[in-house]
């Protein structure tokens, strides 16, 4: 302990120390159907309502390195759904879309007047990305739903 103290003192001397939240940052892409949510997110505050559990501290939530505003988990007969709310950054949208195409290939696209649904289906996981658009151009995220099939 003493050694650690000295090292830390050295590091922080004459400079600002930031709490290293790295240990608490959770990569949501690592979650599987088997993951015990409460254990996995231990230490991070949550809200629980009925069978749904929600985390909303974006400092700790990442999906392929993209900051996630809120994530909620719910288990049902089909498997586990992970619903993410993202910040309305166009670059986030481009990155997520590129990443998902890289992982699962071209999506099924369902375009409407003011929204677009992208859907990727495999036998293990279904991913739906819904965005709002204006004349076909991204304006904001609706939600990103990942269903992990049992």
């Amino acid at each position: 302990m003493k050694k650690l103290t000295i090292i830390l003192l050295f590091i922080t001397l004459c400079g600002y120390a930031q709490i290293d939240y790295k240990g608490l940052v959770k990569n949501l892409e690592d979650i599987t159907f088997e993951t015990d949510i409460k254990t996995h997110f231990k230490g991070i505050p949550f809200k629980e309502e009925y069978s749904q559990i929600e985390f909303s501290d974006e400092r700790f939530l990442r999906f392929y390195d993209i900051i996630v505003d809120k994530v909620s988990f719910e288990n049902n007969w089909g498997g586990r759904t992970m619903t993410m709310k993202l910040f309305n950054e166009k670059s986030d949208y481009n990155n997520i879309k590129t990443k998902l195409i890289e992982l699962y290939g071209e999506p099924e696209i369902n375009e409407r007047s003011s929204s677009i649904f992208y859907e990727w289906k495999t036998d293990k996981v279904n991913t739906t990305l819904r965005i709002k658009t204006e004349e076909g151009i991204f304006t904001e995220f609706d939600e990103l739903v990942v269903t992990l099939i049992q």
């Binding site: 103290t5 830390l8 003192l9 922080t12 001397l13 004459c14 600002y16 120390a17 709490i19 240990g23």
Partner: peptide, 20 residues
């Protein structure tokens, strides 16, 4: 984890006090 965080803050405040 909490303890470590606490230490860091404590140290940070010491370092600021001594050289701010």
């Amino acid at each position: 984890m909490k303890n470590v965080i606490f230490y860091i803050v404590l140290l940070a405040s010491i370092s600021i006090t001594s050289c701010g």
